[in-house]
Simulated scan of single mutants.
Amino acid sequence: MKLSTDLQAFAARIGHDFRRPELLVRAVTHASIATPTRPDNQRLEFLGDRVLGLVMAEALLAADKAATEGQLAPRFNALVRKETCAEVAREVALGEVLKLGRSEMMSGGRRKEALLGDALEAVIAAVYLDGGFDAARALVLKLWGKRIVTVEADARDAKTTLQEWAQARGLPPPTYEEIGREGPDHQPLFTVEARLATGEAERARSGAKRQAEQAAAKALLARMEKADD
């Protein structure tokens, strides 16, 4: 089996020469276009998630030999969460080579955070099955790059951190409200407001609702921490 031109270019971008190209084809095949003879990437995603976790655990231990488990856990979570995987996927233009069904493609599937993150995990598994753990480790370390050493010691997603900030002050969890949506269905732009029970609020916009929520939470948290100072 020979890879198409776009998949050859993608393999070059991630730096892996596939001996079994069918693995990469499967890794970029979404369930919306799968058939009995063309399997989707869900099983590879399952495996890739575990490979990514092991590589990150090893890398974090090597990067900071004095860190405690309590310090390592939030760093690990920040590096393997879906948002980070999707960010890495965008950097290597994974969305451009995904094989999607028509409805998924028309609804903006190539830009969906969950879909991109899942596909990147499937690609990691494809490299693992094709070249072994050393090849998968090399891929992950290359793609994540400086993120591994620059991830903050208390790295957590902004929504979780804001909720903990509120609870520490006896407040209920923040609320998130979608207050606007623009653009076509295949390329929406969401505006989300994060609000505390005391009335303070911040808004953010993003092409993914979840990202907009995170950005609004981050802005509100920064505002409240500044006020605390």
Rank of each mutant, 00 (worst) to 15 (best):
N41V: 03
N41K: 04
R43F: 05
E45L: 08
E45Y: 12
F46W: 13
L47T: 11
L47Q: 13
D49M: 14
D49K: 15
D49Q: 15
V51G: 10
G53E: 09
M56A: 10
A57V: 07
A59S: 13
A59P: 01
L61Q: 04
L61T: 03
A63H: 00
A63M: 00
K65T: 12
K65S: 07
K65C: 01
A67Y: 03
T68W: 02
T68G: 13
G70K: 05
G70T: 08
Q71G: 06
R75F: 09
R75P: 00
L79N: 03
V80L: 09
K82D: 11
E83W: 01
T84L: 04
C85E: 10
A86Q: 03
E87K: 13
V88F: 02
A89E: 08
R90E: 10
E91C: 02
V92N: 11
A93Y: 06
L94P: 00
G95P: 00
E96T: 14
V97E: 12
L98W: 09
R102A: 14
S103L: 11
E104W: 12
M105C: 08
M105H: 14
M106D: 15
S107Q: 10
R110W: 02
L116V: 02
L116N: 04
A119D: 06
L120E: 11
L120D: 06
V123H: 08
I124W: 10
I124K: 06
A126S: 07
Y128V: 01
Y128H: 15
L129K: 08
L129W: 03
G131K: 04
G131M: 08
A136D: 07
A136S: 06
A138S: 13
A138G: 05
